[in-house]
């Protein structure tokens, strides 16, 4: 029976990045959604394409209603790539555009991607976004582009990277100082922005990290864990 709790199974590797989302803190404000766009140069669609379902978000906030008025409850849940240890998207890519890196990240190599869509079809969390057309950045919007993240053309699949560019920056800085990466030093854009501090990121290989401690909480669950995907995003349920 899946418990949702995170166990430390892979301690030989230097880092095993994971995230905890505390749904008791989350307000559904979507600051994380826009922070992700700003950090990762995610293209804006337009109303016509949006009406055809062609909107790109690497992170979405699912919202579901339960019950009947006046006893209606709303569930908000930020959903992003779960960076599964057994990622269903990886083995189906015919060109190895999506693969597992040594730190447990599910990574996408954009210039390998030929847009077969197999990975998106196989992802149970539907967190992959396809560029149905070349993105438009009317002058001078390109000035806001993050130079650490490459722009993706039409025909390419993309997804959350746990802000790998931020991880690399911190790791390089730690290496240069011959010191370990401190707990909490890496913050993906969504985690950094969250006003209610509902999101925590860190090294699941470090049993003392905040993310590891929270992942062992009694409220911990994982999305569709029964599929055997071994997600590295842990949700702490709302306390009732």
């Amino acid at each position: 029976m899946p418990t949702g709790k995170e166990t430390h199974t892979d301690q030989a590797k230097p880092h095993r990045w994971g995230m905890v989302v505390d749904l008791d803190r989350c307000t559904g404000c979507e600051a994380c959604v826009v922070a992700c766009h700003a950090e990762n140069n995610i293209a804006v669609s337009n109303p016509e394409e949006a009406a055809r379902g062609r909107v790109n978000h690497w992170l979405r906030v699912d919202r579901y209603y339960e019950g009947q008025f006046p006893d209606v409850k709303v569930k908000y849940r930020p959903v992003l790539c779960q960076h599964c240890d057994e990622a269903p998207c990886e083995p189906v890519c015919p060109v190895n555009a999506t693969y597992h890196n040594p730190e447990g990240l599910n990574v996408q190599v954009y210039n390998r991607c030929v847009g077969t869509f197999y990975c998106a079809n196989n992802c149970p969390y539907t967190v992959r976004s396809f560029n149905w057309f070349d993105p438009q950045w009317p002058e001078p919007m390109q000035l806001q582009h993050n130079p650490d993240v490459s722009l993706r053309p039409g025909g390419v699949m993309e997804k959350c990277t746990f802000c790998i560019q931020r991880i690399k920056r911190v790791e390089e800085s730690a290496d240069a100082g011959s010191r370990p990466v401190a707990d909490g030093e890496v913050q993906p854009a969504c985690v950094q922005s969250c006003p209610a501090e509902a999101m925590v990121f860190g090294d699941l290989n470090d049993p003392d990290s905040k993310v590891s401690r929270l992942a062992g909480d009694g409220r911990a669950t994982k999305l569709m864990e029964e599929l055997g995907t071994k997600p590295k995003v842990v949700y702490l349920d709302r306390a009732r």
Partner: peptide, 23 residues
């Protein structure tokens, strides 16, 4: 060029955080 806005951790109001509108 400004690439991104984030909350200022020293600021009493944002405390280093920012909403969707600010972003």
């Amino acid at each position: 060029a400004i690439k991104k806005l984030e909350g200022n951790p020293l600021d009493h109001v944002s405390g280093g955080r920012l909403c969707a509108r600010g972003q």
